[in-house]
Structure formats: C-alpha cells, structure tokens
Simulated scan of single mutants.
Amino acid sequence: MQVSTAVATPSPRSTRARDKLMHTAERLYAEHGFANVSIRMISEAAGQRNKSAVQYHFSTRDELIQAILARHAAAIDEHRIPMVAALEASGEVSLRRWITCILTPHIEHHIELGTPSWYGRFLAQAVVEPSLREHATQASMRTPSFQRLEKLWPPRQDRDPDLSAQYRAMIRLLVVHMCAELEGDLASGLVAVADAEQSWRRLGEHLITAVCGLSTALLEISEP
C-alpha cells in the first residue's frame, strides 16, 4: 500500500485565522512588549473562541514571532530585488548606492504598511530579546536579495571581527529604533498622518547618510 506524503493545503478559514493571529500578536507585542502579552491574550484579542488557537497554528510563542518576522522580511525583499538587479546591471557600485539598497526597502515597506502600523515597534522589541535577537537579525539577511547584495560589495571584515560585529549592531539598532520612533510618533499624532510618506522618506535619507558615515569612520570604507 502506497502512503501519500502530500502536505494538506490550509483552508481559507485556517489561513484567515492564522493571519489574524499574526496581525493581532504584532500589534499587542508592539504596544505592550513581549513580557506583558500572553498567548491567551492574543487568542482572545483575535476573536478566537479556542484559547489554544496560537498553539494550534504556531506551536510556540517564538514560532509565532518568527513567522511575523519572516513575512515582513519577504515583503522587504520584494522591494529590494529590483534595486539589486539595477545595481548589478549598472556595473558601478558606490558606497551610498550599496547602502541605499540595504535601507530603502525597509523604508518603502513602512510606507506601504500605512498608519497606524506596528512592525517598527514590534521589531524593536525583537532585536533586544535575547532568545529572538539572532532570528530577528538574520530574517532579512537570509533573503535572496540581501545575499546578492552582499556579494556585490561587502564591508571589510577581515581586519577586526569584533569591530565588524559592533558596526553591524550599531547599524541595526540605529535603523530599527529610529523607524520604531517615527512609527510611534505617527501612531500618537506627534507626526501628522498626512506627512507620513514624506517623514519616512526623509528619515530614510538621513539613515543612509548616517550609515555611510559609520562605514567610512569605523571600517574605513570609502567610495571606490
């Protein structure tokens, strides 16, 4: 007797429930922090009668968080792929263009999310959570577009591995927390929703300039 190994396709109802749980968890974690949100709270806020709905769809809290991170990473990758392709085709890679390909997709994704959004503040929680930090940092770095980008012109890391690690951490914290701050200001009304896109693009330009400065100062990367 032959046993089928096909994986069942989730039903539309199951997919909707999973999406609702992810969206609700992202919002609650962003607003209250990981330590103050229980699995049961997420199920209740998502309107699930089954209090074990999160465990059914994701098994554990960390698996739920990783699924949220992976979804955003995939969306950011869609923005970066054409930028990397254009950079590859140009045959001319400068420091600012390379860093622009790293950062601009994040900014475009924030704009695409609209206001209110919670991803920025959610990610800010994840990058400082010891059990999630590595996954949070690797979620985007493992995407196809980022791996292609690293091959074009990676920063010099052969001289001082500790410095290289600190450099990456500085960039990560700068970008993540500045995005979280703007997202929070938009949500609270400190920045007008009508100015959201302009504010995100201005932040993006400032972050690109700041990271160029860090690259030049710390790793002695300059324009080729």
Rank of each mutant, 00 (worst) to 15 (best):
V54F: 03
G33N: 09
K51W: 09
S117G: 14
E92G: 01
S222K: 11
W98Q: 04
I99P: 00
A25Y: 01
G114P: 06
H110F: 06
K20I: 08
V191F: 06
E150M: 14
A53N: 02
P12F: 13
A73F: 02
T104H: 03
D160F: 07
L149R: 03
K151F: 09
L28V: 11
A35S: 12
V7L: 10
A180L: 07
R80M: 15
L149Q: 08
R27K: 14
Q157P: 00
D19P: 02
A85K: 15
L186K: 02
A67W: 05
H72A: 12
L69I: 02
E181D: 10
R148F: 09
W200Q: 02
M83Y: 05
F34C: 06
Q66C: 09
E134H: 13
R202A: 13
E129R: 12
E220G: 04
I76Q: 07
A86S: 08
Q138I: 04
A187Q: 11
R121D: 00
E150A: 15
I68K: 00
S4I: 12
A30T: 04
Q48N: 10
E108F: 08
E108G: 02
T115H: 03
I42C: 04
D19S: 15
V193R: 14
A85L: 15
A45D: 12
V191E: 06
A17H: 01
V176E: 02
G204I: 04
R80D: 03
S94W: 01
T143E: 11
G189M: 08
L218D: 02
P161Q: 12
P144I: 10
L69M: 13
F122N: 01
A6S: 14
W98G: 00
G184E: 03
K151N: 15
S38E: 06
H206Q: 13
